[in-house]
Computed example of a mutant assay.
Amino acid sequence: MYEIAPLLDDPIHNLKTIRDLYRWAITEMETADLSYGHGSPDSWEEASFLICRALKLPFEHFEEFQDAALTHNELVRLVHLVDRRVHDKVPTAYLLKEAWLTGHRFYIDERALIPRSYIAELLEEDLAPWIEDPYAVSSVLDLCTGSGCLAILAAGVFPNAAVTGSDLSEDALEVAKINRRDYDLEDALELVRGDLFENLQGCTFDLIISNPPYVTTDSMSRLPSEYRHEPEMALGAGADGMDVVRRLLPEARRHLNDNGIIVVEVGDGLEAVEAAFPGLELTWLSVSGGDDQVFMATKAELDRYFGA
């Protein structure tokens, strides 16, 4: 039983319905210094997501249940969750062990970064026009796979591809294994532990996607509390945020098939990428966060720059 006695002042005792709790949760979130960088843009959506999914209600029918009365156990659990979100600054995805990306549900806990990536938007569009025929893609690598979310999305987009997810963190790969099982991809998705291409010698791919660590040292020191619950190794990447990308790109060309491409997310790191690789011909792709978040390079471009 959750200990919530200190929280249950008279106003909370009077909460009866989902609508009551929803209103109260928004007020609690609005009066707290919360960061909403893990899926919900504001307290309204955060509160609705937390309540809806904690009660296992479908998003599309949430409003139909708002006047439903809560049982005592439901109220106790929900108040406890809101309290942890507001006072401990635990991201809702970790509280619920659930995150959603482009309409897909993923298991998540504090062993891995909460699923979020602009690359998911590009996969929704089959990476067109850069990939002409998704059925012709035979191999995909998701480097720094974390929870495995992008690898799993890629498996759905490229049905004839053998998909590999690689990560240095054994803990993150344990989370990826849960998601692989949930999507029934044990035979279609290989998970490899290694530092970038360390254990992928001799392996080449038509497509490499990667959402690597890219947060600068200065930005790491100023992260909101919510991000402190995530694995630091999945975020921090040195003074300019390029520690991982600086190692990744020179090696990538050896693991791309002819006509292969690599797609990398770097946050707002356009200037840092161009400073690290002056003269490298990159294509910056348009995503909802802007035109400076994700770049693409071809094997031919990488060979020309780094030497075949």
Rank of each mutant, 00 (worst) to 15 (best):
M1Q: 10
M1T: 03
Y2S: 06
I4K: 00
A5K: 14
A5I: 07
L8Y: 05
D10I: 14
D10V: 12
N14S: 10
K16D: 10
T17M: 05
T17V: 03
R19M: 09
I26S: 00
E28W: 12
E30F: 12
L34S: 10
G37E: 00
H38Y: 02
P41S: 15
D42G: 07
S43I: 03
S48Y: 11
F49E: 06
I51Q: 01
C52V: 08
A54T: 00
K56M: 00
F59Y: 14
E60A: 02
H61I: 11
H61K: 14
E63D: 15
A69G: 00
A69N: 02
L70D: 08
H72D: 12
N73K: 03
L81I: 07
L81A: 06
R85W: 10
H87F: 13
V90P: 04
T92V: 10
L96Q: 02
L96S: 02
W100N: 10
T102S: 13
F106K: 10
Y107V: 10
D109A: 13
E110T: 11
A112H: 11
L113M: 14
I114P: 14
P115C: 10
R116N: 06
Y118G: 09
E121V: 05
L122E: 01
E125R: 07
D126I: 01
A128L: 09
W130A: 03
W130G: 09
I131N: 07
A136N: 08
V137S: 07
V140Y: 12
S147E: 12
S147H: 13
A151F: 11
I152Y: 03
I152W: 09
L153T: 02
A155C: 03
A155H: 09
V157L: 08
F158E: 06
V163T: 13
V163I: 12
G165S: 09
D171M: 05
E174V: 14
V175W: 10
R180G: 06
Y183C: 05
D184Q: 15
E186C: 11
E190A: 13
V192D: 08
D195E: 10
F197M: 07
Q201H: 06
C203I: 13
C203T: 14
T204N: 03
T204R: 08
T204E: 15
D206P: 04
L207M: 06
L207I: 13
L207K: 03
P212E: 06
V215G: 08
T217I: 14
T217F: 06
R222V: 01
S225V: 15
E226T: 12
R228A: 04
M233Q: 07
G236C: 14
G236S: 15
G241R: 05
D243Q: 11
R246P: 00
R246D: 08
E251T: 03
R253N: 01
R253E: 04
G260N: 05
V263Q: 05
V264L: 05
L270Q: 13
L270T: 08
V273H: 02
V273G: 00
E274L: 15
A276E: 14
F277I: 03
G279R: 07
L282F: 01
S286W: 13
V287F: 02
S288R: 12
Q293V: 13
Q293A: 02
V294M: 02
F295K: 09
Y305G: 04
